[in-house]
């Protein structure tokens, strides 16, 4: 009875969020889905024509789409585990109490205060093959100059490094909040029982942080599938399309080539890809939770 009575109230409280979700998320996705079946007419300026699955057929028949898909998957297969594991390890580290910890915390959280575009510009200067700071430092230890962002074998890794530098500190905030919610009595009891630091981490911290970790993993994956700024500002999808992720290919189609139908078709594929990945992540972590 009580539960029944609370349903309308809950609905009313959720309504603003649901309206925002519908207006700012679902409606644009529906528009994009419709747009992916349309093209601009070349015979009559400004006229939009329904072309069915033509855009999808064009996209799936384009080798560059498959290369972009591969780059997107490669980026995400590497960057998501690295970011989450690094964020978790650093969070556990900054959660310790010892002299000078505030300084380390400050250092680790500095990237949050730098916007991604500014971070990209700074990193571009530091990774400059001719006069960048990184090559100067490498030179000090006898390593030859690297080409970083202009080398097709190094560009994607450089982008991953920049995105990780920026992303890890952000995800640390959530994990740190999750850590604060774990009762300290559990650790004290474990210590009294003689549990080592590793045991406490694997048997207390990790299980009780699972929900936060799930949130971080899912959100991080979504963010990285849609990663765009470093490609836009640093590489423009190159060299040799080595950083041409689907997000950038969609942008290029829509806003450089003016082919919005193609851009939206790529975007729908990307949404599908993110959705499948997130469902798999939910499924895997829920399975472990229930077991």
């Amino acid at each position: 009875m009580k539960l029944k009575g609370s349903v309308p109230a809950a609905f009313v409280l959720l309504l603003p969020a649901l309206i925002c979700l519908a207006v700012f998320r679902l409606y644009p996705i529906a528009l994009a889905a419709w747009g992916s079946f349309c093209q601009e007419s070349f015979e009559e300026a400004g006229r939009i024509i329904f072309v069915g699955l033509q855009n999808y057929a064009d996209v799936l028949g384009d080798p560059l789409f498959w290369k972009s898909l591969w780059v997107t998957l490669k980026l995400n297969a590497v960057i998501n585990p690295i970011q989450v594991v690094l964020a978790l390890l650093l969070t556990v580290m900054v959660n310790q109490r010892f002299r000078g910890i505030a300084f380390y915390r400050l250092l680790l959280f500095v990237p949050i205060g730098v916007s991604l575009p500014i971070a990209c510009v700074i990193w571009r200067l530091m990774l400059d093959p001719q006069s960048g700071l990184i090559n100067s430092l490498l030179g000090q230890i006898g390593i030859d100059k690297q080409r970083f962002l202009i080398d097709e074998h190094q560009a994607l890794w450089s982008v991953m490094a920049i995105a990780t530098w920026k992303g890890v500190s952000f995800w640390m905030i959530f994990l740190w909040a999750g850590l604060q919610a774990i009762p300290s009595e559990l650790y004290e009891a474990a210590r009294l029982d003689g549990a080592t630091a590793a045991t406490r981490f694997f048997y207390i911290t990790l299980p009780l942080l699972k929900r936060t970790l799930l949130f971080v993993l899912v959100t991080d994956t979504s963010v990285n599938f849609l990663l765009f700024v470093p490609m836009f500002l640093l590489t423009r999808g190159g060299p040799s399309y080595s950083t041409n992720v689907l997000m950038y290919e969609s942008y290029r189609s829509g806003f450089i080539y003016g082919e919005m139908g193609r851009a939206l078709a790529i975007m729908m594929v990307l949404i599908l890809l993110v959705s499948i990945t997130v469902v798999i992540q939910f499924y895997c972590l829920r399975q472990k939770e229930s077991s």
Binding site: D151, E152, Y241
Partner: peptide, 8 residues
């Protein structure tokens, strides 16, 4: 983009 790649 092609000539930029060639340059690189």
């Amino acid at each position: 983009s092609t000539f930029e790649d060639i340059r690189n």
